[in-house]
Every structure is written in C-alpha cells, then in structure tokens.
Amino acid sequence: MTFTSHDIAFVGLALLTLAPAALVVTLRNLIHAALLLGCSFVGVAGLYLLLNAEFIAAAQVLVYVGAITVLILFAIMLTQKLADNRFAGAAYNQLGWGLFVAAMVFLSLGKLIASQTWPAMYDAAPVADTTRVLGVQLLTTYIVPFEVSSVLLLVALVAAIVLARDEEPVSVPAHLNEIYDDESADQTPTGGANA
C-alpha cells in the first residue's frame, strides 16, 4: 500500500477536522470552543478540495469560518458574563445518555458503511471546471431550490430582525384625546365601584 500526497493530505485534514470537533463539544470555555469550531470548518473545507469541490470549499470558508463562527462568538459575548459563577457550574446535562446515543449512532453508521461495497474513485476529474458548471446548473436545472433558498434567506433575515427588536408604544395626537381618553380614565382609580 503506497501513500500518495493525496493520502497524506487526507489524513492531515481528517485530524484537523475531528480533533478540534472533539474539543468543541468538551471544552468548558465557550470562546475557545467557538475558535476551534472554526478550525474544524477549515478542515472540512480542505476535504472538499480533495473532492474537487473548489466552490463549495470557498463557500465553506466564507460562510462557516467567516460568518457563522463570528456570529457564534458574538452570541457568546452578548449572553455570557465570564465572571458569572453559573459559568463555573456543570457544563453537561444527561452525560451518560448523550454518550450512549452518540456512540450507538457512530457504531451503526460504521456498520452501515462497512456492510456495503463502494466504487473506487475514477482517475480523471469528471468535470474540469466545477465552479462554472455548478453556476450554470444552479440557474437552470436547480433553479427551484436556488430560488427557494433565496426566499428562505429573506425570511430568516426578517425573522431575526423581528425577534431582536423592541416594540414601540402607540402615541395619540392631542386633538383625538377626547375620543381616546377613556382608556386613561380607566387606569385612574374612580372609587372602586367595580371592586
């Protein structure tokens, strides 16, 4: 069995993916965990490159490493007081069940993979210029999912804004006070006739 340069890169990238991922789910310090999450994403991007998916690799770096990691860091900083003593409490819930389920999932997936015979990779890259072909196909064959995801992005944008903003109170102009002032009258105590 000979190792090609591809194989060496593969092993390295696999380690770069899995090792930080293991730390992400175990480290107590969330800031560190988030930074390691970025490392893991970079490793996955490398694996994409090995699989001739340059565009997806670039998108991975831009979206996951660039945007989502930063977003998560922001969320941590907005919600976590590092000096908060709650932060020092237990980091896990139901650790036993979680370990069991995760391990069982891994084992059954492994068994599933091992129970099949998979074709080997063919030599030549099937598509010379995946980015161009993908671009054409996204706007022809896959136009529907493409458009749907654009709508989803819009909805998510609106949803995030709506969730994060504050309601503003309604103000009544002075000349309509006569009609709308019963409300304020209701709020003032009037002798407790209804009590």
Binding site: Q94, W97, G98, V101, M104, V105, S108, K111, L112, S115
Partner: peptide, 15 residues
C-alpha cells in the same frame, strides 16, 4: 435523546 433512540431502533431493525 428519545428521538434518536427511536431512530436507532429503526436503523438497527433495518441493518
């Protein structure tokens, strides 16, 4: 957890 246990049962049955 319960959801995944259920899914695992189905996968096992299939395997």
């Amino acid at each position: 957890v319960v959801l995944y246990l259920g899914a695992l049962l189905l996968v096992m049955a299939g395997l």
